[in-house]
Write a protein that binds this DNA or RNA. Structure first.
Lengths: 228, 228
DNA sequence: GTACAATTTAAACATTCGTTTGAAACAAAC
DNA sequence: GTTTGTTTCAAACGAATGTTTAAATTGTAC
């Protein structure tokens, strides 16, 4: 066996979870496919739930670290001024899409699936891992497109994340529907198409007036904490 | 009992599936919550799988019929000419979002979850139900934004659908992240924000040259069938 | 080579699942 | 009131699940 058992389990779990969903993969299927004993999952990880979060931790921490590093660089380059919208979007999209270059489409797909998974421990995990990162980006977008109201910026950021997550979940469908024309395996093109599309949506003229001093009191005070 | 047993089962199933996911809801939980006997699911529907598709058929057929009716009206109003992009987008989004007005957020959420569900019978069901509809819309977009290449139009339609599906799955998260500013329960506003955002993205200048005669041979011939 | 810890293994455990069964309860028709 | 067909019910079935156990194996240090 050329690989350590825990890694063998993690790799197989990542792949199978992405292909079939977490619930649909039993530990017996998983361990058989990985060529390890059934009990070794509990020996090395403690439980299936712990295995699921272990599969994620291996990737997510680096993913979000890269995002924040890119965002730091963007903000530094802007030197106190408002950052370029495309750069902020790229910092949000690129690390997520790029992981697929190393892992194949498996992790991307799993990540998208997990985001939609209703299980409580999964939701809590996601909130912990992605919440602070989303907060940082909310502030960045606030400065990149200040002409939008907080509400409208919220909508558009939501739509942008939606396009990203959907691309993670449904990359095969896109390739099928477009008869192979659009290939999410082409990472650079995927990123650029996404950044360009989202930037155009973000830059569309505001539908509603911005949050200037006159409208400020319409906004409940706790809404200010959205950027924390 | 004020309600027939099958309807009672369907209503409870729709709600619980949306809240917790299909796999996570056992028939025992479901029937207990619905106040009916465990065996009545099999008596009235035959199996859990059949129940799942029954839950969907009740809504999806009307949903896609409404979409196609709206699209028909839009194309008729355009009178042979290219339809207005915003109208095509609205025909795609509005019926889906509007279902939530009648059912609460449950069906929308379930629909989004199902779309991400990897189970094979679910995927096949979705392909049958939504495939032809997607085809019609692909043609409509072809005429609404002819300046884009098929490839780029494919990407942007994909992103637009992503924003829609994501809104279906994650409406509670949007409300939370925006501190209540963005409320997906406000159907009209949700639709308009989505249409406006997607139209701006679609109308952004093309990144690549359009499919004119010179480039046609780069495209494999079977790509023409994408609109069927 | 012996001793000790880490790991692997096969087997069993207790639940839970979707499904089936056969009798009971109910309704409507004659 | 009896009959007939539909619906409900409690109980059980077999299979699959995550988890635990305790013995067997392997690796490592002395």
């Amino acid at each position: 066996m050329s690989q350590e058992t825990p890694d063998q389990i993690l790799d197989t779990a990542e792949r199978l979870f992405a292909e079939r969903g977490i619930d649909a993969v039993s530990l017996r299927t998983l361990t058989a496919e990985a060529g390890v004993n059934l009990a070794s999952v509990h020996y090395h990880f403690g439980s299936k739930e712990a295995l699921v979060t272990a599969v994620f931790d291996r990737r997510v921490d680096r993913l979000n670290r890269e995002r924040l590093e890119m965002l730091d660089a963007v903000e530094q380059r802007a030197g106190g001024g408002p950052p370029l919208l495309e750069d902020v979007l790229r910092a949000l999209f690129a690390p997520a899409i790029r992981v697929s270059q190393e892992t194949g489409p498996t992790f991307m797909r799993l990540c998208g699936r997990m985001y939609a998974e209703p299980a409580e421990y999964v939701q809590k995990y996601f909130e912990e891992k992605f919440g602070p990162m989303i907060g940082r980006f909310t502030t960045a977008f606030e400065r990149a497109v200040p002409e939008l109201s907080r509400k409208e910026r919220g909508w558009r950021l939501h739509f942008a994340v939606g396009a990203m997550v959907f691309t993670m979940i449904e990359s095969e469908k896109l390739k099928a529907y477009s008869k192979g024309l659009c290939d999410p395996a082409n990472v650079d093109e995927t990123i650029e198409q996404m950044v360009y599309y989202a930037a155009a949506g973000m830059r569309a003229p505001a539908l509603m007036p911005p949050d200037d001093a006159a409208d400020e009191q319409k906004t409940p005070p706790e809404a200010e904490e959205v950027t924390v």
